Amino acid sequence: MRVAFVTESFLPSVNGVTNSVLRVLEHLRRTGNEAMVIAPNHPGGLPETYAGFPIVPTASVTLPWYPDMRLSATLTAQVEKHLAEFGPDVVHLAAPVVLGSKGILAAAELGLPSVALYQTEVPQYAVQYGYAAAEPLVWHHLRKLHNMATINLAPSSYTRDQLIEQGFSRVGVWGRGVDVERFSPSKRDQALHDSWAPNGEVVIGYMGRLGSEKQVGDLAVLSNIPGTRMVIIGDGPARAEVEGQLPHAIFVGMRRGDDLPRHLASVDLFVHPGELETFGQAIQEAQACGLPTIAPRRGGPIDLVAPSHNGWLYTPGDLSMMRQYVVDLVGDGYKRAAFGHTARVRVEDRTWPKLCDELIGHYETAIELGASVGARIA
């Protein structure tokens, strides 16, 4: 199989879109398939290859209200040229918005089947960043774009239902895998934990991008819980603001490689306050580390957190409920351990190879559908 990726984000940007594309590319290499990636260029420079596959840069500019997303400045004809030269069996559109819209038009022009993955709550991000009037226009654009794809995939059941309500067609669910060897309770570093909590405090952790859409400032309601320390893993444009909101928290910055799971596994419980998560990969990685997790009852976390089994879900916006659940776990070491054990067990079969095999199944379905449509037209 030959798969062409058109992605709104790629290295050196590190986010959920980039991460999933990388894992799929690695799986395609392991399983003997071929791929290429069309991505926006980046001031830090795109790699020329990844997993042995070529990376084709295209012109782009920074999107002011969301720096992680590059605004494509390339032409549809140029994307079509790249696709035609590669000759893919299927086109994978990763979080299509701008470059992805040119990718789907190019694929349609060439008669190529496509699989479009909805991964980012761009309409809600527009509201979060002060462009509320743009929300219906963004939904209109995304609906028109996705409805040109052969198959659409949402990362969670909540997001699938949301897309169907918005008029998206042919929507299925494809979750995300987790590296259960990299993220594991065995990565816990007790000395690191004790450096944060020298008096035996319970460490409350958050890991992720520090942007306004992640609502990390909501964790301020946890600041005065007796016998706790808070550790924030990650970086982003809102870091200075969040540091002001959480003056007593320990900020360790962005961690990479083996240092990331070492830091994550060394906290005692994980809280993710963002209400715009289409999946919640950080939650899944925390669960793989054996951490009980607390998150809003909205979006991807609904599929990941089973209340009273591996964590708690609170009503979005109800920060007193969030605090209540954190106090519950802080005060009950046995429950923390039981929830953490269940969290680990529930993710052990959600490996990237398994999830990538599922995605290849979706590719095959799109190819079959494309062939069927082509036969009817002929």
Rank of each mutant, 00 (worst) to 15 (best):
V3T: 15
V3L: 03
F5V: 14
V17G: 02
E26C: 05
V37T: 12
G45L: 01
L46A: 08
P47R: 02
G52V: 15
F53A: 13
P54I: 14
P54T: 13
P67A: 00
D68H: 07
A73W: 02
A77D: 11
E80M: 08
E85K: 11
D89Y: 06
S101G: 01
S101W: 06
G103I: 03
A108K: 14
E109M: 09
G111L: 06
L112S: 05
A116Q: 08
Y118S: 12
Q119F: 05
P123W: 07
Q124R: 13
V127G: 05
A133R: 15
A134S: 13
P136Q: 12
H141C: 07
L145R: 05
M148Y: 05
L153S: 08
A154D: 08
R160V: 08
I164C: 01
E165G: 03
V173E: 08
E181H: 11
R182G: 10
R188Y: 07
L192K: 11
S195C: 07
W196A: 06
Y206V: 05
G211Y: 00
K214A: 08
L222F: 11
I232V: 15
G236I: 11
G244R: 13
I250G: 13
V252Y: 01
L264R: 01
D268W: 01
F270E: 09
V271K: 02
H272R: 06
G280I: 07
I283K: 11
I283F: 10
A286C: 12
R298N: 11
P301E: 07
V305G: 00
V305N: 01
P307Y: 02
N310G: 00
L313Y: 05
P316N: 08
P316R: 09
G317Y: 05
S320V: 02
M321A: 15
M322G: 12
G333T: 15
G333P: 00
R336L: 04
R336Y: 04
F339Q: 02
H341I: 10
V347P: 02
T351G: 02
L359N: 04
G361S: 12
E364T: 13
T365W: 06
E368V: 05
A371G: 05
I377K: 15
